[in-house]
C-alpha cells in the first residue's frame, strides 16, 4: 500500500515496513521514527548505519550480533528503541523486518 512520508509517496507492507529501500532517505527515517514515538539522536543514527551496513552485506541481524559487534550493547539497544528494538530499528531504517527468533 501507499503512504505519504516526509512529502514523499512510499510503498509499505501492512506492518508499515518499506517495500523498496531506494525510497528511503533520512527524512523518511525521521518520519518513521516519529510514528514509533522515537526522537532520533546521533546515537540512533549510528545504530541505523550499523543496520544498513549489515543489510548491504546481506548478513542477518540478531540481538546476539549486536552484543558481538563490540560497538553497541544490548541494554543500550533496548533503551534507544523501546518496545522491540530490532523490529523498530529495521522499520525506521527502511529494511525488512528480520525473520529471527534470537
Amino acid at each position: 500500500m501507499k503512504k505519504v512520508l516526509a512529502n514523499k509517496e512510499i510503498d509499505v507492507n501492512e506492518e508499515g515496513y518499506l517495500l523498496d529501500f531506494t525510497q528511503w532517505n533520512k527524512e523518511v527515517g525521521n518520519s518513521l521514527a516519529e510514528e514509533c514515538d522515537i526522537v532520533l539522536t546521533p546515537r540512533h543514527w549510528e545504530f541505523i548505519e550499523y543496520i544498513h551496513d549489515k543489510y548491504n552485506k546481506e548478513e542477518p541481524l540478531s540481538i546476539r550480533g549486536i552484543k558481538k559487534s563490540g560497538e553497541f550493547d544490548v541494554k543500550e539497544f533496548y533503551a534507544l528503541f523501546p518496545g522491540g528494538p530490532l523490529k523498530k530499528a529495521t522499520l525506521i531504517a527502511g529494511i525488512p523486518k528480520p525473520k529471527s527468533c534470537i
Binding site: 546476539r64 552484543k67 550493547d73 544490548v74 541494554k75 533496548y78 534470537i102
Partner: peptide
C-alpha cells in the same frame, strides 16, 4: 550454526534485554 548463544552468554543477553 544457527548463531544461538551458549547458556552463559544467553543469560547475559536476557538480563541486558530486561
Amino acid at each position: 550454526k544457527l548463531d544461538m548463544p551458549p547458556i552463559g552468554e544467553f543469560l547475559e543477553i536476557l538480563s541486558d534485554s530486561g
